[in-house]
Computed example of a mutant assay.
Amino acid sequence: MRRSVMGTAVTLAAGAMLTAAMTTASASPPQAPAAQVQPPRTVLVDCLWHRTVRPADFILACGDGNSRLTGLTWKHWGRNAAVAEGLNAVNDCQPYCAAGRFHSYRVTVRLDHPAPWKKNPDVQHFTRLSLTYPGARPEGFQPVMNVPLWD
């Protein structure tokens, strides 16, 4: 009988230890698989301080809207640069801007010079926009125009 009691005690103790080990293991939160950390995207900040990525349109002349990019098709958007093709719609302001007409010019847009955004330093934003006109361009414009972007 003594062996039977001892065997039972050993079996019960082993069962209790196994139950405790399983309870402890199941009480721990499951380990999530290691996710690949994606670096945050560099953004384009618009006139209203909205962050955008691959916008279809973008206002260049925030004060009066007399120059804007339209129909943008993005070929590349990376952390250090972005490239799109589209149109630059520019008001000729003849005889004055309110009476002027908009003319559209084919343009390649390049964004670069990323830097921390003053409004939110954890966000990288492009600080320069370059416009390259492959053909006709607005009067007084060079074939390549560099435009600093607001912070």
Rank of each mutant, 00 (worst) to 15 (best):
A34I: 13
P148V: 05
R2E: 13
A115P: 00
D64P: 07
P55R: 12
P30K: 13
R106L: 10
K118G: 12
C93Y: 08
D92C: 12
D57Q: 13
P121H: 06
M17E: 06
V43F: 11
P143I: 07
V10P: 07
C62I: 08
R3Q: 07
R54Q: 13
D92F: 12
L129A: 05
V37M: 03
E85K: 15
A115K: 06
P33I: 07
Y133D: 00
N91W: 14
K119L: 15
V43Y: 04
G15H: 04
M22Y: 15
Q124M: 00
T127E: 06
T19A: 05
W49V: 09
A98K: 01
V37L: 05
R106P: 11
P33S: 11
N120D: 14
T11C: 10
H113G: 07
C93R: 10
E85W: 13
R2C: 11
C47V: 03
T132D: 12
D46V: 01
L111I: 02
N66E: 02
T42K: 00
G78L: 07
T8Y: 00
Q36L: 10
Q31W: 01
S67T: 15
R137A: 05
L149D: 05
P143V: 01
R51C: 09
N146C: 02
T8P: 00
K119I: 09
V10K: 05
P95A: 04
F141A: 15
M6C: 15
D92Y: 06
R110S: 12
G63K: 14
A9G: 13
V83M: 11
Q94N: 10
P95E: 02
P138T: 14
C47R: 08
D112K: 12
A115E: 04
C62F: 09
L131M: 10
T52H: 15
N80D: 07
A16T: 03
Y96R: 11
R41F: 06
A99H: 03
D151K: 00
G15L: 13
H103I: 07
T23R: 08
S4M: 04
T8E: 00
T23L: 11
G140T: 10
P33L: 10
Y105G: 01
C93A: 14
A34R: 14
E139G: 01
A13H: 10
Q36E: 10
G15P: 02
K75G: 05
W74L: 08
R106C: 01
V90A: 02
T127F: 03
T24D: 00
A81S: 15
V147H: 13
G78Y: 06
